[in-house]
Simulated scan of single mutants.
Amino acid sequence: MVAGVFGEAIDVQNHEFEEKVRRDNQLVEEQGIKSVPALFINGTEVSASSYGEIKKAIDKEIENNG
C-alpha cells in the first residue's frame, strides 16, 4: 500500500505502477495541490469551476504571453 497525498491508501498489489504512483504523489506535494481535479495554465494553478471561467483564464494567458 502507498499512502496518497490526500490520506487514502492506494492498493499497489501490481508493482508495475508503484513507482509511478509514488512520483505522482511527490509531484502533487511539490506543486502544493490541495484538491483534485487541479488545473494549471503555464504552471499557474487556476481555480476556475466553469467552462467560461476556464476559457477566460486561457484567453487572458494568451493575451499576456502572445
Rank of each mutant, 00 (worst) to 15 (best):
Y51L: 05
E18Q: 15
D59C: 02
Q31P: 00
I41A: 04
K55A: 11
I41K: 08
K60M: 03
N42A: 11
N64W: 10
V2A: 11
F40I: 02
N65S: 15
G52K: 10
G7I: 07
A57G: 03
M1C: 04
S50R: 06
V28R: 13
E63F: 10
K56L: 02
N42P: 00
I54F: 12
N64C: 01
G32V: 00
G52F: 02
N25P: 01
G7F: 06
L27H: 09
K60V: 00
Q31M: 11
L27G: 01
E18T: 14
R22L: 14
K20E: 14
V5P: 04
E30V: 00
E53Q: 15
T44K: 15
V2L: 13
E8W: 07
R23V: 09
K34N: 11
I33S: 05
V46M: 07
Q13G: 12
K60F: 03
V21T: 14
I62N: 05
G7N: 13
E30F: 02
S50N: 05
A38G: 04
N42W: 07
N42F: 03
M1D: 09
V46G: 03
V5I: 09
G66E: 12
I62K: 13
A38W: 10
R23L: 12
R23T: 13
H15C: 05
F40G: 03
V28P: 00
E8S: 06
A38L: 01
R23F: 09
V36F: 14
H15E: 14
L39P: 00
N14W: 10
I33E: 04
E63N: 10
K20Y: 14
I10Y: 15
R23C: 05
A48L: 03
E53K: 11
A57H: 05
Q13R: 14
V12F: 07
V2Q: 14
K55C: 00
Q13A: 10
G52W: 05
R22N: 14
E61Y: 15
S47L: 06
E8N: 13
I33Y: 10
I58E: 02
K20A: 15
S49Q: 10
V46R: 08
E53P: 01
E30D: 14
N42H: 10
A57T: 00
K60L: 04
Y51K: 13
K56E: 09
G32N: 11
D11R: 08
A57V: 00
A48K: 05
I33N: 06
A9I: 05
G7D: 09
I33F: 07
E45P: 01
T44Q: 15
V5E: 06
A57C: 02
D24G: 10
S50H: 06
G4P: 00
G32A: 06
G43W: 07
E19C: 04
E53A: 12
E61M: 08
G7P: 01
I62R: 11
E30L: 04
S47T: 10
G7W: 09
N25L: 02
V36L: 13
N65Y: 11
